[in-house]
Structures are given as structure tokens and as C-alpha cells.
Amino acid sequence: MNPEFFIPIPVLLSQLTLGLVNGAFYAMLSLGLAVIFGLLNVINFAHGALYMLGAVLAWAGMNYFGVGYWTMLLVSPLIVGIIGIIIERLLLHWIYELDHIYGLLLTLGITLVIEGIMRSAYGVSGLPYAAPSELRGATDLGFMFLPNYRAWVLVASITVCLATWFFIEKTKVGSYLRAGTENPKIVESFGVNVPVMITLTYGFGVALAAFAGVLAAPMMQVSPLMGQNLIIIIFAVVVIGGMGSIMGAIVTGLALGVLEGLTKVIYPQASSTVVFLIMAIILLVRPAGLFGRDK
């Protein structure tokens, strides 16, 4: 075998699991983006910043108050969810009637403010955050060593994604949510308080982002800019998958993560652009997106 093209199996598998983990992040974030867009008609540019905020809060909890990972895994999304609710009530609330671009621009402004504050507080260099002791080390699967933390992130994020899917597609509250994306008036006539539903949806969507942020904290450098490039990848994921389907968002996210992981092994230089390339190809062959609704 030509040694140049020989890819050691462990490296491949390791990159694949890492890709899968990244894909799970993409899934969780694009899911939140889709849910928010469905109900608020706002593309939440701030999603990346709020993901970062989740991670930074986890770090701050540890460093200032000695609060550990597991607590912050709950507290951090909660705080970010509340911040989201405040953002929705204070700012987003006013622009639902306007052209969609204003939602994008407003949340872009919010992004810059959040990132700006964090930057002036922490600078741009990464803050180290250790995985909880229970999840350190790796497990020998026979064919590869799987870092325990990665395994946990995969299980946790896919569980959360599926739970969200179940909640939205299979429960009564979820059916209101879905109906609300089509016709808020009808939902109102069921006695649902639609403005509250909208606020809570935004809070939930960004809490999901913060949850992803805490999960990411031990794996990536915690930094005020960690969401900046991620949000654009998420946009590409959403363009590829289309925002009509929850399962579509999950599947697309995971698949793209894996593809990205594969690219890292085969042709590392392209790993940061492969998602965008795939987006371009999808636009050529299936402009409405993989799970997009008929135009």
C-alpha cells in the first residue's frame, strides 16, 4: 500500500468520533436555530455568542465560585435561558412585523455586544477548563481508545436532540408550537398565550445553545470568540438541511460533522471549508435543501 495514502485505522476512528461529536453540536445548535426561526421568524445570529456564554459561565462558575461541571451543566443553560428571555422581551419583541433581515441584524448587534463584553473581561486567549474527573481517561473498545468525555458528549447531546424532537413532534405543547409556526391566530384560539410561548421558545432555544457550550468547554478552548465561526457553519447546516424539519436538522448536523471529520483525515486543508462546499453543491443540485419544503 502506498504509505502516503495509508490512513491508520485508529486515527480515522478517532477523527470520526470527534466529527460525530462536532456533528452533535451542529445538530443541537441548528435545532435551536430552526425552532426559533419557526416561531419568531428571526434567524438568531446570537446563537453562537450564547453558546460561548454557556461555556464561559461554566468556566466562571468553576473559577470564581468553585461550582463544578455537573451543576453548571444545568445552571449555565438556565442563566442563558433567562438572558434569552430578557433579550426577547426587551429587543426581539419589537421587530416581528418587520422584514426578516432586521431580525438577523438585531441579533448580530446582540452578538457583537455579548462578545465585546466577554472580550473586554477575558481577552481573546483560551481559558482552560478541565473535564470532570469521572469522565477523564479513555475506554479501550478493542479497535480504538474512545475518550470517555467524547462518549459522554455524544450520548448527552444526542439524547437532548431526540428529546427535543419528541417534545415538538409528539406532545401536545409541541403541537401548539408547530401550529404556531403556521398560524399563531389558531393557536391563540386554543387559549394558548402565544407571546409567552414565543418568549419561552427563544429562552429554550438559547438554553440549548448554552448546554452545547458547557459540553464543549472541556474539549475546546473556552474563549469569547469560540462561537464566532461556529455560527456560520450552523447557518450552512441550516441551508443544507432546510429549516422545515427537526429530524432533518439533527441528521444533517451529525452527517456534516462526520464528513468534516473524514475530511480532516483525508485532506486536512479542506476541513474548515468542506461544509461550505457541500452547501454549494446542495444549492446546485437541490436548491430547496435536503429536507426543505417544496417551494
Binding site: L91, W94, I95, Y102, L105, L106, L108, G109, I110, T111, L112, V113, I114, E115, G116, I117, R119, S120
Partner: peptide, 13 residues
């Protein structure tokens, strides 16, 4: 960037 962000928010609103 923060000041830019604030101007963005004011402008849009």
C-alpha cells in the same frame, strides 16, 4: 465591536 453592536441594536429598533 461592542459599540458597533449597540449602534446596530439602536438602528434596527
Amino acid at each position: 465591536p461592542m459599540v458597533t453592536g449597540i449602534i446596530f441594536i439602536i438602528c434596527v429598533l
